[in-house]
């Protein structure tokens, strides 16, 4: 715990974070690339067709990781915002600012791949059921956080306003997750659960879980890249940035 706190305090120093992240990014990006490529090969070539859906089941290997990680992004953004607000930690706000557009991109992917998948399986691109609607609300929340932060001249004020929206919006995450259990939806309920047996055959579960892992590592790398940019933007007048570009 102590070692973690030391690491945490060191990380909260922008120049330290900037250097550390610069070294760490390839260690996430390359494994992400390899894992996703393997998962795509397994998903598109090696995995079997579904007994009902046929080949369209292969859309699952990009749809499900996008959807899961869109919720993961939102939760992380809310946690970073809360840390930034409570401890007045600027770097945490920078992380939250870095996550928002990445999360919006994943939510967009989840919605669009879901719509394309819906046509051959359900017979429609879109319905206003609880799952689809709450995921659409997630996209609006991400966009709202981005817009709100930019709406203020003063960066600290923008950070605080965006933090409040991010924290308030986090109630939508359990709503998305449990919508398929709480209410009747056209969307099927969860196939993979942490405990208990999953409804997916292992030949399909393997590429799915590999893709989720690949997407997760990719996102960590992307968020580190975007946070470095945020740090540069926010600290552009600081001495360490000047020294950095001169050396």
């Amino acid at each position: 715990m102590n070692a973690f706190m030391t690491w945490f305090y060191q990380m909260s120093s922008p120049p330290h974070f900037y250097r550390w992240a610069g070294r760490a990014i390839p260690w996430f990006m390359w494994p992400a690339l390899i894992l996703s490529a393997v998962a795509a090969y397994l998903g598109l070539v090696r995995s079997p067709e579904d007994y009902q859906m046929g080949h369209t089941v292969r859309i699952m290997y990009v749809h499900v990781p996008s959807a899961w990680l869109s919720m993961w992004c939102y939760t992380s953004m809310a946690v970073a915002s809360a840390i930034g607000w409570i401890w007045r930690m600027k770097l945490a706000h920078a992380v939250a600012a870095a996550i928002a557009p990445a999360g919006a991109a994943l939510t967009f992917l989840a919605l669009v791949t879901g719509a394309i998948w819906g046509k051959p399986t359900w017979g429609t691109y879109w319905v206003w059921d609880a799952r689809l609607t709450s995921e659409l609300v997630l996209l609006f929340l991400f966009m709202g956080v981005v817009l709100l932060r930019n709406a203020f001249e003063d960066r600290a004020q923008g950070d605080r306003a965006a933090a409040i929206l991010a924290i308030v919006g986090v109630v939508n995450v359990p709503i998305i997750h449990y919508s398929v259990n709480w209410w009747n939806t056209l969307h099927q309920s969860a196939s993979v659960s942490v405990a208990g047996k999953s409804g997916i055959d292992s030949s399909m579960l393997m590429p799915l879980l590999l893709m989720v892992l690949g997407f997760t590592l990719y996102l960590v790398a992307l968020i580190l890249m975007r946070t470095r940019n945020e740090v540069l933007l926010r600290e552009s007048r600081k001495r360490w940035v000047q020294e950095l570009v001169q050396s």
């Binding site: 795509a40 598109l44 046929g54 080949h55 369209t56 859309i59 990009v62 669009v112 791949t113 394309i116």
Partner: peptide
């Protein structure tokens, strides 16, 4: 072609 399902599967992967 994926038995005709390719028109749904490929756009998803390309877009992603």
């Amino acid at each position: 072609n994926m038995d005709g399902d390719g028109i749904y599967v490929w756009p998803c992967y390309v877009l992603t």
